[in-house]
């Protein structure tokens, strides 16, 4: 009986390690590609829009993602907390989530026709995930105001 439990544990660990690793690699690749694609959309954390001469149209844009760690990472992190220190397996997870959220926000801004987002805020929340308790699932949301030049007004008489 005990050996079956060990077998299941090891199988989950292996599944988490291989599939999780493959997933992460694919995700990072897609993130890099899209970051290059949306490089023209600039995002700033400044509170006030730059002084612009033309009147601007503005809209709230946001992007969010809920991401969870794999079984292997959970186990490694669990062991790691015994000794303390950097949990690099979770660091890369949150890095992925933040970049993904920012990209989705930029995507929305570009659809609106804007290339400038100001007052960007990034927020992270724990989503208590799933049937079992304590599974680390994080939600990251990025939001800001996208600005674009409004249609030129008729010159004043």
């Amino acid at each position: 009986m005990e050996s079956i439990q060990w077998l299941i544990f090891l199988a989950l660990l292996a599944l988490g390690y291989f599939v999780g690793r493959w997933n992460e690699r694919a995700h990072f690749k897609s993130i890099r590609e899209r970051e290059a694609k949306y490089a023209k959309v600039l995002a700033f954390a400044v509170r006030y829009p730059p002084d612009v001469v033309t009147p601007q149209e503005c809209r709230l844009v946001s992007g969010s993602v809920v991401i969870s760690s794999d079984y292997f990472k959970q186990c490694v992190a669990g062991l790691r907390t015994l000794g303390g220190g950097r949990l690099s397996s979770y660091e890369s997870l949150l890095d992925r989530a933040r970049r993904e959220a920012t990209l989705r926000m930029k995507e929305q801004a570009q659809r609106f026709g804007s290339t400038l987002i100001v007052n960007v805020k990034v927020e992270t929340t724990t989503v208590s995930g799933g049937a079992r308790k304590g599974l680390p699932a994080m939600e990251v949301m990025a939001y800001g105001t996208a600005l674009k030049s409004a249609a030129p007004r008729a010159p004043a008489p």
Binding site: G16, V19, S69, D70, V127, G129
Partner: peptide, 20 residues
């Protein structure tokens, strides 16, 4: 339940993203 299964291999939980 699906999210629980997804937790083994990690990655985005689309259902939760939609929910939020």
């Amino acid at each position: 339940l699906l999210a629980g299964l997804k937790n083994i291999v990690g990655g985005e939980l689309k259902g939760y993203t939609e929910l939020m």
